[in-house]
Structure formats: C-alpha cells, structure tokens
Amino acid sequence: MTFAPRPVATTDRPAVALYSDTLTLPSEAMKRAMFDAALGDEQAGLDPTVNELCRRVAALFGKEDAVFLPSGTMCNQIAMLVHCRPGDLVLAHEDAHVLAHEAAAGSALGGVLIGGLRGARGQFDSATLTGAIRARSRYAPIPRLLVIEQTSHLGGGSVWPLERLRDVAACARSNDMALHMDGARLMNGVISSGVSASDMARDFDSVWLCFSKGLGAPFGAVLAGSSEFIDVAWRWKQRLGGAMRQVGMYAAACIFALDHNVQRLVEDNANASRLAAGIADLPGLAVQQPDTNIVLFRTEGTGLTSAELRDRLAAEGVSVTAMDHFLGRAVTHMHVDRDGIDLAIGAFRKVLGAN
C-alpha cells in the first residue's frame, strides 16, 4: 500500500482540506505583489526582488548570506553536499525529513550515510547523540553533520525547546560536527514558543525556511549561512540545475508572506489544538496534542487502518493523510478556519460512531 497525501474525494459539499499545508494558495494581495515585482536574471545575481528576499531571510536568522532555492528538499541536500564528503556520517532523528521523505537523496547525490537517532516526538537529547558517535577510526564513517528539524514533522509539529537545541548543538560541536537546521515550518515554532528565529538558528551553520507551506507562497525556500557556505551552496545549486532566471515574482510572494503571513500562524496552531481536543475522546483513536499545526492520530484501536479512516472522512468532505498503516495526519493552514475545524470534528465523530 502506498501512503501519500491525496486530494479529498469529490462530494457535493465543500471540502475541509487537512491533508497538508502545502495546498495553500496565494491571496489576491500576494498575487498583486508578484505582478508588481521588479525582475532580473537571478542566476547572475541581478534579480532585485530575489536579492531583497535573501537579505531579509539572512537577517531573520542572523546569518551573513542566503540563497533562493526551489524547494526545502534542495536546501537540505545542498547543505549536506556543502558540509559533507562521500562516506561521511550525517546524524538526524530517525523520523527526520532527510531520512523519511527525500528518496534517499543524501546517499544518491552525496554518498553520505544518514544515521537515525531515537527520541520522543522527533527529538533527541545530547546523551543519545553522544551514544551514536563512534570513536574516530579508519573503519568507521566520520560523523560530519547533525541535522535538526524545527518543527519536527513526524513529531507532530513538535517544537524543540531552546535549551535542548543548544545542548545538542554543544555536543555536536565538541565532536567536530557541523550543524544544519531543517526549518520547513520553523515560523510555526517561533509563533508557538515565542523564541525568535535568530535565537533558534544561532548555533547552526546552515538553516532554511520554506515559503510554500503555512506561509502561503506558491514556491520557494531560502537557505542561509555564512558567506563562505553560501558561495559553495551556489556551486551546488548550479550543478543541480537550481539556478533560475526572472523569479522575482516568486520572491515577491515570499516577501509578502514575511510581512503578512507570519503572525497569522497563531490561528493555524490554535485550530490544530481545537481539532485535537475535539477528537481526543473518540473511541479507539489515539490523538497527539500538537505544539503547532500538525495533528497526528493512531487508528489501531478503532479497527480501521489510517487509509480506511482517510477514505471514510473523504466521503464526508474532509481530507487527511494516511502516513503509515495506522498513523494519520491532519495539518491546519490558512484555508481552513474555525468553522472548517468544527466540520472536521463532526466528520471524525460521525465516522467513528460518536454522534
């Protein structure tokens, strides 16, 4: 069985689409900003809107420079290609995106070995990290890079506390490892925790932010780091075919998102909490209380697989994702308001016989 997001089945009722926050669409105001953007050749460094976006994101994270890329997966892969050499060891949580959702690109493109670390809700501590680092030997791969996902997707959007981030970063540094932060939904974590993006990223050599999820832009991610790091990242961007032309229209959407769509993430986080609370008492459904905008639930006790529950909810006009045999996911975003959440709760309750 294939487990992947899919659109809701066609019904005669409006869909409540919770299968991902990647389905967000640009607003009319964002589209106007895109239409009005100043453009140039991005590959030659001549697109003023792209350059402004990169300056903004570098400043957001307290880094020297940044580069605009098509996707977060490319950000992760370029970061590993810059930090590592073939045969090196990358350590990340066992559920991290670089392990679970990038088609083994780290091995295919960079020849790196990615080792998975265990821990609750997509996080681990310095003791676990220390235990995974073998003594230097010609028989073992060199532990070169630590990857942290903030927020943790398969941790249910969990937010790494600042103290834990700094603790594992210090441990990695003491073992001569570089640090990379996968920040796909980092701003959801900033809004939830009240910790600034620059404080979260302070100890990391590289960090990126996705704009095509909860921030509502149609395209793009920005990878930030030192000037030296970004210089090498540009070479990999060129090699991977990621250099672009007049993409200031996309960059304008990202700038609009920074100006208008960050603070509203509080609504998505609150709607996820409302959804989780509304289905937590359903018979047999094990619901994880979210930190941010991702609600994970397990279906073993209901007698249904996650795919079976997904399909029954689709018939009620609600779409969710079947992540594995018994793990389901609902993701809140700007196109699902409080009324939509209440409709989703009603659909869950109807399908699981609680009405």
Score class of each variant (00 low, 15 high):
residue 239 R to S: 13
residue 184 A to R: 06
residue 221 A to F: 08
residue 163 E to W: 05
residue 42 E to I: 01
residue 190 V to H: 00
residue 201 A to N: 02
residue 133 I to S: 04
residue 287 V to G: 00
residue 217 A to R: 07
residue 245 R to G: 13
residue 298 R to Y: 11
residue 30 M to P: 08
residue 29 A to L: 13
residue 84 C to S: 08
residue 251 A to P: 02
residue 236 W to G: 04
residue 235 R to G: 14
residue 173 R to H: 10
residue 159 V to S: 02
residue 41 D to K: 06
residue 19 Y to M: 12
residue 338 R to G: 14
residue 11 T to H: 04
residue 166 R to Y: 11
residue 60 L to R: 05
residue 313 L to M: 08
residue 138 R to S: 12
residue 124 F to T: 01
residue 229 F to T: 01
residue 128 T to D: 08
residue 205 D to T: 04
residue 39 L to S: 08
residue 311 D to P: 05
residue 270 A to W: 04
residue 32 R to P: 09
residue 280 A to K: 09
residue 158 S to Y: 06
residue 167 D to C: 11
residue 305 T to N: 04
residue 206 S to V: 00
residue 5 P to M: 05
residue 259 D to M: 12
residue 227 S to G: 15
residue 116 G to L: 04
residue 56 R to H: 12
residue 58 A to T: 01
residue 85 R to E: 15
residue 144 R to N: 04
residue 11 T to F: 06
residue 192 S to I: 02
residue 111 G to T: 07
residue 299 T to M: 05
residue 149 E to Q: 08
residue 161 P to W: 06
residue 300 E to S: 13
residue 214 G to N: 12
residue 347 A to N: 05
residue 150 Q to E: 13
residue 214 G to C: 11
residue 237 K to L: 13
residue 98 V to A: 09
residue 33 A to G: 09
residue 343 L to Y: 13
residue 311 D to S: 10
residue 33 A to W: 08
residue 327 L to A: 05
residue 324 D to K: 10
residue 244 M to H: 14
residue 3 F to H: 10
residue 209 L to K: 03
residue 172 A to D: 05
residue 209 L to Q: 07
residue 95 D to I: 13
residue 147 V to G: 05
residue 276 A to Y: 02
residue 140 A to N: 14
residue 78 I to Y: 04
residue 291 D to E: 09
residue 296 L to K: 03
residue 21 D to M: 01
residue 208 W to L: 07
residue 322 A to I: 09
residue 92 A to M: 08
residue 25 L to P: 07
residue 160 W to H: 02
residue 41 D to M: 05
residue 159 V to Y: 03
residue 97 H to Q: 10
residue 261 N to T: 02
residue 203 D to P: 05
residue 272 A to D: 10
residue 316 E to Y: 09
residue 58 A to K: 00
residue 95 D to P: 09
residue 120 A to M: 13
residue 337 D to A: 09
residue 351 V to Y: 00
residue 243 A to S: 13
residue 353 G to Y: 04
residue 65 D to T: 04
residue 306 S to M: 03
residue 224 A to N: 04
residue 260 H to F: 11
residue 283 P to I: 12
residue 4 A to T: 14
residue 256 F to E: 10
residue 308 E to K: 00
residue 151 T to Q: 07
residue 192 S to A: 15
residue 119 G to D: 06
residue 79 A to P: 06
residue 12 D to S: 15
residue 297 F to D: 01
residue 160 W to P: 00
residue 352 L to P: 06
residue 164 R to W: 02
